[in-house]
């Protein structure tokens, strides 16, 4: 299957979804007006990936900002990964937050409370938005 490689824009994140390594990255800002449109190909990709996933899938989320329109879509990504885990594969979520950004840490904890995936909270100095 094809990988997803999207460069970040002022309103959408950098996306690297690699089916060969099982490494899925979301980095930068996710504040588009129409998030459903942006996230649909990402969600479809995970659905396809779920047919033949790697033994270990890791989703690295490193966001500086995300809007509430994105938050339901990001939850949807997690839910698709729950299905990958339920079929007997390991799935990890690394949720990055900047050292002084307790709001972003809380946002990660909110997802953690809803989603049955192992989350690791990773403190960083600054979101790398390249």
């Amino acid at each position: 299957m094809n990988d997803i490689l999207l460069d970040g824009t002022p309103k959408t994140p950098t996306v690297h979804f690699n089916s060969a390594t099982g490494l899925l990255e979301l980095r930068g800002r996710s504040i588009p007006e129409n998030s459903i449109e942006f996230y649909k190909p990402l969600i479809d990709w995970i659905d396809q990936y779920a047919h033949a996933p790697r033994p270990l899938t890791q989703l690295r989320v490193q966001l500086e900002y995300f809007n509430t329109s994105s938050s339901k879509c990001i939850l949807d990504l997690f839910k698709r990964l729950e299905a990958v885990r339920n079929s007997g594969n390991e799935v990890q979520v690394l949720w990055h937050y900047e050292a002084d950004d307790e709001d972003m840490l809380e946002a990660g904890e909110d997802y953690q409370a809803i989603i049955k995936l192992p989350f690791t909270m990773v403190q960083i100095q600054e979101v790398d938005d390249n």
Binding site: I36, T68, S69, D110
Partner: peptide, 24 residues
């Protein structure tokens, strides 16, 4: 925070996608 988590997890999408999360 509880209200937000509830609205986030309820699986409902609104026209604008946020499912009523904006004001919260």
């Amino acid at each position: 925070r509880d209200l937000y988590k509830h609205a986030l997890g309820d699986g409902r999408f609104t026209r604008s996608g946020g499912g009523g999360l904006g004001l919260i």
